[in-house]
């Protein structure tokens, strides 16, 4: 168990500093909650107002891509959770491997998403002049789909960046004293996972037979 945390400038005690990172990150996650809350309000309104026509749009999503990605992201959360706990325990080798696995799963998610986008585009599922379905609530569903998945993918890419930063810290050889950094990173990564977990039924399970 390595508890020798480096104390940064404004803090007097390690105990206070240890709370600071989770508290700061959770405050930021509250922000994210309201950020996505805004677009979920759009979804709730459109689904309530659009009714059947909205669900008809949702029928066109591909459940295989969606389910595969849910599984991939949940697994990345597992590896991230192990990595974070291992860092705290000072098991740097295990942490390193798990961080690489997390990056791997994150990239896999983006690759699957890319294939899914290719299929969506080839089926003319982008609202506009060549849209496959009728303009109306179905188009609103797809407006939501594109906006929210791209926003989520950007979040995931930022997540890859911060996990990569941990690996870079590890390359310098001081991952163990940065356990709070690892904790903050893990919190963010899990949030990206939670957003997807909520999106899964909203995007892929609506209007199944």
């Amino acid at each position: 168990m390595s508890s020798d945390i480096i104390i940064h400038e404004p803090f007097e005690t390690a105990a206070r500093q240890k709370v600071a990172v989770p508290f700061g990150v959770w405050s930021f996650l509250a922000t994210e909650c309201l950020f996505f809350g805004g677009i979920f309000l759009f979804y709730a309104y459109a689904r309530w107002h659009g009714g059947e026509a909205f669900s008809a749009g949702a029928k066109e999503t591909d459940i295989w891509f969606g389910s595969a990605n849910t599984f991939i992201l949940m697994t990345s959360s597992l590896t991230m959770a192990i990595a974070e706990r291992a860092t705290k325990e000072g098991l740097v080798r295990l942490a390193r491997w798990m961080l690489w696995a997390t990056i791997g799963f994150g990239l896999a998610f983006l690759v699957v998403k890319g294939f899914e986008y290719r299929k969506d585009i080839s089926e003319h599922l982008i609202p506009g002049p060549h849209f496959k379905l009728e303009q109306g609530p179905a188009a609103q569903f797809w407006a939501f789909y594109w906006t929210v998945t791209v926003t989520h993918a950007i979040h995931l890419t930022i997540g890859l960046g911060v996990v990569g930063r941990l690996l870079w810290i590890d390359r310098r050889g001081d991952l163990a004293p940065h356990a709070t950094t690892a904790e903050g990173t893990a919190l963010y990564w899990h949030l990206v996972d939670i957003v997807w977990v909520i999106l899964y039924p909203l995007l892929y399970l609506v209007g199944r037979p």
């Binding site: 509250a30 922000t31 994210e32 909650c33 309201l34 979920f40």
Partner: peptide
Amino acid sequence: AALVGVIWA
């Protein structure tokens, strides 16, 4: 902090 986000949403 975690709870506040949900309540405000």
